[in-house]
């Protein structure tokens, strides 16, 4: 797998949303809706370039999503943007009925997911959004870095149907480059290995790659899979389970109903495998992003420890 091996440049995935939208501006059907957060969600550049296709909803997220549904029903490709806690939490009923049941082609693009929101604290650190959206059958993409976030945004416009795109606030290392394959729905093996497979999404993919380095010093060969989309790329996950015999999932999300739960259900059905889960088990709190990563056990050393545990259960 070709990656940007230096990991020196850092950028937030939310910037990928902004830059992706700017590129999509060429498509006259693409419209952007915002709920008073154009700076934070990085949609301001689109607004400046395409003011007629930018709609401000104000602090009214139910209406943000409802308006997007109306635009979608008439053939537009709306990106409804806000923070994850508002878009998937506050507006859940509207997403359920007017987007999911309605089969409206709305791209719900939310930033500020996860504990790395930092100082704003627990009310703003959305940790249940993937569970909520996948429960509605909405395809969910959690990009691993800025570049993948931009590519996911661009790919979302031509994806047939509604999508949930999940982005973070914090600057994180860019680990992919232009040659890294990306296709919604297809997981990619970012590092090969045979003793254990770490299946991760979002910013946890970088932590998983770092964990694999730690494991290597201990003689454990770890495979790292960037599993950015749910529903799962079942083939890649099952292949990893059969080849490695032990699994760790890693996500900046609750262990209930996200990537880990989904992987373990698949494994329980098709290939029972010792599995351990890295993810949050409580609401967040105020602190720096790195302190909170530490506090919730989302960092590479913790993943490496949990991986060793899974491996010992083989």
């Amino acid at each position: 797998m070709k990656l940007n091996s230096k990991f020196t440049e850092k950028k937030a995935t939310r910037d990928g949303l902004g830059d992706g939208l700017l590129e999509l501006g060429r498509n006259p059907k693409v419209v952007v809706l915002c709920a008073d957060l154009e700076e934070s969600t990085k949609t301001k550049a689109f607004k400046q370039k395409h003011p007629k296709r930018f709609f401000e909803a104000g602090v009214a997220e139910m209406n943000l999503v409802g308006m997007a549904a109306g635009l979608a029903l008439d053939g537009y490709i709306p990106f409804a943007t806000t923070f994850a806690v508002f878009g998937t939490g506050l507006a859940y009923g509207t997403v359920r009925q007017s987007v999911a049941i309605n089969k409206a082609n709305v791209k719900l693009a939310c930033t500020h997911a996860g504990v790395t929101v930092g100082e704003d604290g627990e009310t703003h650190q959305m940790l249940e959004d993937v569970s909520l959206m996948t429960g509605l059958g909405i395809t969910t993409v959690v990009p691993c870095d800025y570049l993948e976030a931009k590519r996911a945004t661009i790919a979302a416009a031509s994806w047939p149907g509604s999508l949930y795109l999940r982005f973070g606030r914090e600057k994180t290392p860019i680990i992919t480059d232009a040659s890294t394959p990306f296709k919604i729905g297809e997981a990619e093996i970012f590092r090969d290995g045979s003793d254990i497979a770490i299946i991760a999404n979002g910013i946890e993919v970088f932590q998983a790659l770092e964990a694999a380095k730690i494991l290597k010093t201990k003689g454990v060969s770890a495979r790292v899979i960037n599993c950015h989309t749910l529903p799962l790329d079942e083939k890649t996950v099952l292949k990893a389970a059969r080849a490695c015999g032990a699994i760790v999932t890693a996500e900046e999300h609750s262990i209930h109903g996200g990537l880990g739960s989904t992987v373990s259900r698949l494994l329980a059905e098709k290939a029972p495998t010792p599995t351990e889960f890295v993810g949050t088990r409580s609401f967040g709190e105020s602190g720096t992003a790195s302190q909170l990563m530490e506090r919730h056990g989302l960092t590479a050393p913790y993943i490496a420890r949990v991986a060793a545990l899974a491996e010992s259960r083989k």
Binding site: A69, A72, D74, G75, Y76, G93, S98, I101, N102
Partner: peptide, 20 residues
């Protein structure tokens, strides 16, 4: 034209359709 049942959503969808 639209799914309805949970109340208070139709007007939002209509606003989107009017913008379209």
């Amino acid at each position: 034209e639209t799914t309805a049942g949970m109340l208070g959503q139709g007007l939002s969808v209509s606003v989107g359709a009017a913008l379209a």
